[in-house]
């Protein structure tokens, strides 16, 4: 049998939640370990096998000068690089700082600000290196992660549709809560992947999978406005986990 492909998991600025999704794949992990060599995954094992790696999963955004250098290294030793989660794909919740001056925060938060070395902005991995595939979500869905890895192993395209959460909602047999209960829901502009988790529990989607393809955020904002959602609350809706995803960024700025 051919050599098993080598997998590495890298962490940048993040909460580790997406890596946990990988550990959460309890049943699938054994199958995974049988088909791929987990060569570098510090969250799971301290043992590190040297690169290059066939598949790198990258979690987290770029926020420090050190990150800037490290992501270039990671790219160099990775044949196939997949970002996992909102941080790596869009800058994450920490990209909220991009709307303010970072030096102001530092002086408030830290006793000795001179020890802090950080960049002005939190940015997505794709702003710095070529990314082969982006897996959305905050956190990512473990079934989608397994799908991406399976597709990689068997040289096929992953089945990760970029359409709306509404499609998943209707496939699950849900009734639209925006229409039937006037709940503010970002489903119509949000990338599928979660299986319509929040709407299934009567909660509006808050866009943690980022923008779907062909997003029309302003039309949805108009509707939310008609439902009585205040301008600043519309802004807050678009300014969360994926605040720096281009479509959401543009929409939140329109509500300044």
């Amino acid at each position: 049998m051919a050599r098993k492909p080598k997998l590495a998991v890298w962490k940048f600025s993040s909460c580790d939640g997406c890596q946990l999704s990988l550990l959460d794949c309890e049943d699938e992990l054994l199958a995974l370990a049988g088909n791929i060599e987990i060569a570098n995954f510090l969250e799971a094992s301290r043992e590190v096998i040297k690169g290059p790696y066939d598949l790198s999963l990258v979690e987290g955004s770029i926020t420090t000068p050190h990150d800037l250098k490290r992501i270039q290294e990671v790219r160099k030793i990775s044949k196939f690089l997949v970002t996992i989660g909102a941080c790596a794909t869009a800058g994450g919740i920490q990209a909220l700082r991009n709307f303010q001056s970072v030096s102001d925060f530092i002086s408030i938060v830290y006793a000795t600000p001179e020890y802090i070395s950080t960049l002005e902005q939190s940015t997505a991995i794709s702003s710095h290196v070529k990314v082969d595939f982006e897996l959305h979500g905050c956190p990512i869905n473990k079934e989608q992660l397994v799908e991406v890895i399976s597709a990689f192993l068997f040289h096929r395209k992953p089945n990760i549709p970029a359409h709306s959460v509404c499609m998943e909602c209707k496939l699950a047999g849900n009734v639209c809560i925006l229409v039937s209960n006037g709940v503010a829901c970002l489903g119509p502009v949000t990338h599928a992947g979660c299986g319509a988790l929040c709407p299934s529990y009567n909660r509006g989607c808050f866009g943690c999978y980022g923008a779907k393809e062909n997003t029309n955020t302003s039309s949805l904002s108009n509707k939310l406005y008609q439902l009585g959602v205040k301008n600043q609350d519309i802004q807050k809706l678009f300014r969360s986990y994926n605040a720096y995803t281009p479509a959401f960024l543009k929409e939140s700025k329109a509500h300044d």
Partner: peptide, 28 residues
Amino acid sequence: RCLSCANCTMVCPTCFCTTVQDTTDLTG
């Protein structure tokens, strides 16, 4: 105005379109 969200086609009682997806598991 259209969100291209697909709700109209999902709820329409006559729309019939489907897609087909092939998947493999991790073991192959």
